[in-house]
Design a protein around this nucleic acid. Structure first.
Lengths: 210, 210
DNA sequence: TTGAACATTGCCCCAAAGGGCAATTAATTT
DNA sequence: AAATTAATTGCCCTTTGGGGCAATGTTCAA
């Protein structure tokens, strides 16, 4: 049951309007999507476990507690990257601009057309999978880098910075043979088969703590 | 006169409403910005020469000819990256969402508050300068890469791909000494002092034709 | 046609990288 | 304390990268 939570992309629908929620759920399921419906942000948060996969479809303002924009901000703070589609009957331009600039995938108005909704959801799911695969790659790289010892990490930094072994040895206060040993370990652990590839990997780690 | 067109960031204001245009111009100048005002897209396009520097501030719909959204698309097609702030009295949510998703920097509604306008313009100008400096770097790299001969380009690709000289020579059907010669030229022309730096530069060229 | 500029290549030399092997030392476990 | 494991280093050898020098084409324009 819960094990399947993140196995395939799911449209997480949050709306307090029961009839609308039911209708949207039916519409999305008919279009072949997996749907989880919640009547409030709290209900969604309670059910949530582990990273999300799919997209969010929710009203901007929901009764009692945080609205959609707050949820979005909270998710972003948690490093969650799932695409968010807002749906609202009482939005205005500044709100929509704010939402999109904050990273929302789309901002739809009620009543929403069947085609418009499905188009947006399909695109959001696709985007979500793209983001997901990129995140997996980065995570994998981070894992490899995490296996480096402190000494190896030092060598890694300098190698991808283009420093020759002799200079690295001087800076680290050890002999060249040691640098070579660490360097070999770096290539092994990072699974790089050439210096060029190692530099490439380090660029992809962009900003992540190395 | 025209020589100073791109020397400092300029707010290019396009609006057909004369009194408003005058008022906005005064407001922006009072805040220390350089302003060029136009009453139509056509007027703006006629005055334009060379790459823009600064930002655009324009109404979404303008009388006679293309509206703001069309201008934005046209500029993007031309590779122009200047931030665009839309200003409108008759916009709706789908229009604002469309604009922002198409890359607009902001979407303001009339009447616009003095603070909101100045905040947005300031941010747009800052973003514009960031984009500009990044573009200058990329252009510089492109220029260097453009000086490579076809043979050097071939070697360049394979070197940053991590291939050893011997293998490159085999693939290109020449001897290793020739590869070395080309390789040296690549390092010279690309102004790289190490293989790591060369790889770094090639990543920065990302997608640009090499 | 002839000279200048450029690309290709061979020969040779040196520096740098990669790595095997073994000894020494430090750290950790039993 | 003894044993084991991990890190550092020296020694030595091979391959690769970098580059000087000169000869041999090649191309293009005067």
């Amino acid at each position: 049951m819960t094990a399947s939570f993140a196995e395939i992309p799911v449209v997480h629908l949050i709306d307090d309007d029961d009839p609308l929620r039911t209708a949207l759920t039916r519409l999305l399921r008919a279009a072949g999507h997996e749907v989880r419906a919640y009547s409030s942000v709290a209900e969604f948060l309670l059910a949530r476990q582990g990273p999300l996969r799919g997209c969010l479809l929710l009203d901007v303002r929901l009764p009692g507690g945080p609205g959609g924009l707050e949820l979005q901000k909270s998710l972003i703070r948690q490093g969650e990257t799932v695409p968010v589609i807002f749906l609202t009957g009482h939005g205005d331009i500044p709100m929509s601009v704010q939402a999109i600039k904050s990273g929302a995938f789309d901002f739809l108005t009620k009543p929403v057309g069947r085609t418009a909704l499905l188009t947006s959801v399909r695109a959001a799911l696709a985007r979500g999978e793209d983001i997901r695969s990129a995140a997996l790659k980065r995570h994998d790289l981070g894992t490899r880098a995490g296996r480096l010892t402190p000494a190896e990490r030092q060598v890694f930094r300098r190698v991808v910075d283009g420093q020759p072994n002799k200079q690295i040895a001087a800076e680290l206060g050890c002999c060249e043979r040691t640098v070579k040993a660490h360097r070999a370990q770096v290539m092994l652990k990072m699974e790089a088969s050439s210096l060029a590839e190692l530099v490439h990997l380090s660029e992809a780690l962009a900003g992540a703590p190395v």
